[in-house]
């Protein structure tokens, strides 16, 4: 849960007076709160932690990190089904 993952802002919307965005994480999309970096534009990259953008990131760094995370299976860990992952870990080695 401590992870923060870079993603590309696909679209920005307003929901109940809160700035939200659709963010693409290497093909996977999530709704993300933009209130902490409100001036981000579509196609810019942000670092996202538990559904909140906490900083901007340049495109090249973001792409490299995403490729790295994908290779290490970290994206699946971050966005996969929490119960499935916990159950799998419980049933895994040991």
């Amino acid at each position: 849960m401590c992870l923060a993952v870079p993603g590309r802002v696909v679209s920005v919307t307003e929901r109940d007076g809160t700035t939200m965005a659709d963010v693409d994480f290497g093909g996977l999309r999530k709704e993300v709160c933009l209130e902490y970096i409100p001036d981000v534009k579509v196609d810019e990259y942000v670092i996202v932690h538990v559904g909140f953008a906490i900083q901007r990131l340049d495109e090249q760094s973001a792409q490299e990190t995403l490729a790295n995370f994908d290779r290490l299976g970290i994206l699946e860990e971050e966005f996969g089904d929490g119960f499935e992952i916990a159950a799998r870990q419980a049933g895994a080695e040991g």
Binding site: E35, F52, I54
Partner: peptide
């Protein structure tokens, strides 16, 4: 729970 990284999400 969490450190300063997670706290803004919970605060919001």
């Amino acid at each position: 729970i969490g450190f300063e990284t997670t706290a803004p999400a919970n605060a919001m």
